[in-house]
Structure formats: structure tokens, C-alpha cells
């Protein structure tokens, strides 16, 4: 397929989206990431049944925290796609990068 996606996206692999923790997302923001997104399996198709649903709730929780402290909650996002959707993966990377570019750099000073 050899699809391109923006080089500023750093991919961190986890065995299941369910492994992603609230703290992983917060620490990324705290350490200066402009945005963080979780790319999980399609809803209803989690190999471990509900990993992606659980993390969807964690993402919503982190959005609430960001909102509370006056940061744009759109800097954190959750997407669902299957491992066979390479095209969609690249599309999401472009979509999220574009959104973050519009929001501008993080207000967090390192």
C-alpha cells in the first residue's frame, strides 16, 4: 500500500486499546504533545471484548479534565478502525494533524 502519513505523528503500540490509560494521555499532554489520539478497533470488534469501549470512556474523562483546566479538549481524540484499514489509518493521521495545526501549538511550556 505504501501510504504516507504526517511525520509528526508518533505511533506507540499497545496490545489492545484497553491498555491505554488516562495517565498515558495526560502525561503526553503534560510533556508537551500538541495532541494525542487513540486508534482503537471498531466498536464491537475488540478481541478482548470491551477494551476500545473502556478507553473511549477514558478519552472522554481526559477531555473533561482538559476542559476544566481551560485547554481545548479536541487535543485528545479517539478513533475506531480495523487493522485492515490502512487507508483509513493514514486518513485519520492527516485529519488529526490538520485539526491540531488549526488549534496551534500546545500552551504547555516545557
Amino acid at each position: 500500500m505504501r501510504l504516507n502519513y504526517p511525520s509528526e505523528v508518533k505511533v506507540l503500540q499497545v496490545p489492545c486499546t484497553g491498555r491505554v490509560d488516562i495517565l498515558h494521555l495526560l502525561k503526553a499532554i503534560e510533556d508537551g504533545a500538541d495532541g494525542v489520539y487513540v486508534a482503537g478497533c471498531l466498536e464491537g470488534e475488540c478481541h478482548f471484548l470491551t477494551g476500545n469501549i473502556k478507553t473511549k470512556k477514558k478519552v472522554i474523562y481526559v477531555k473533561k479534565i482538559l476542559e476544566e483546566i481551560g485547554m481545548n479538549p479536541d487535543r485528545v481524540e479517539m478513533y475506531n478502525l480495523s487493522s485492515a484499514q490502512g487507508g483509513r489509518f493514514a486518513e485519520i493521521a492527516h485529519e488529526m494533524t490538520e485539526k491540531i495545526h488549526k488549534l496551534g501549538p500546545t500552551p504547555i511550556k516545557k
Binding site: I22, L23, L26, K27, I29, E30, I65, L66, E68, I69, G70, M71, P107, I108, K109, K110
Partner: peptide
Amino acid sequence: ILASSLGIARKK
């Protein structure tokens, strides 16, 4: 989580 949240808020 609280430490990280407060840390973000103050760094901001």
C-alpha cells in the same frame, strides 16, 4: 492523575 492535571494547568 491529579498531579498530572495540576501540572498541566500550571504549565499552561
